[in-house]
Design a protein around this nucleic acid. Structure first.
Lengths: 95, 95
DNA sequence: TTTATATTTAAATATTTGTTTAACTATTTA
DNA sequence: TAAATAGTTAAACAAATATTTAAATATAAA
């Protein structure tokens, strides 16, 4: 659980997640969006992977990253009691 | 925005937030829940305050902390696009 | 094969973070 | 007023983090 919160703490990683809502992307394509070295992005992707916020599959020489529902469910589960407390509009994620 | 994610990154701070769903609590009462020095808890409360996840008011010699909706709304707003993403129909087979 | 491309892993480093002890401020009680 | 209580602020430091450059791995193209 800790790893998910660690993962979304970094602004670059949050941008990567946002970028992936547009669909699956190669590591290189993701790296291009940021003024940052590839190893740094690779490190961020690794952390997002550990948090199960992204997943990847190998397509030839490319690694294609996608959003992974599991990590987001973890966040949702943590957040739920507070939405009840405040009666915030409920996130519509399907569990 | 960054400060909110920083705030919820720490497990002690997440426990404090959870504890406050039971209602307003004095700093001292909060500190008692944790095997940790008061200054450390005070520091965590300060960060939660900066993130607008908690608020406090002075009652005599006591500081009474409560949950603050603002910070949670920030999290909710950030989370929303991902809930929408996972509601979309499953990706179709590529032709 | 050899070379180029895509990406990760490793090593090094500066910055940030969480914790503690000690000192300080404010309020209550005797 | 003096002493006790509630809590914060300050200083110091070890541990964790994000970044970079350089080296390594794997696949594709020539």
């Amino acid at each position: 659980m800790d790893i998910v919160f660690k993962a979304i703490n970094d602004p670059t990683r949050r941008e990567i997640l946002r970028f992936l809502t547009h669909g699956p992307q190669n590591a290189g394509t993701i790296a291009q969006q940021f003024n940052m070295s590839k190893p740094s992005i690779s490190h961020h992707l690794d952390l997002l992977k550990q948090a199960q916020l992204v997943d990847f599959s190998k397509k030839g020489q490319f690694l294609v990253y996608t959003l992974n529902k599991s990590g987001f469910e973890t966040i949702h589960t943590w957040f739920q009691p507070f939405t009840l407390f405040f009666e915030l509009p409920k996130p519509k994620i399907r569990l």
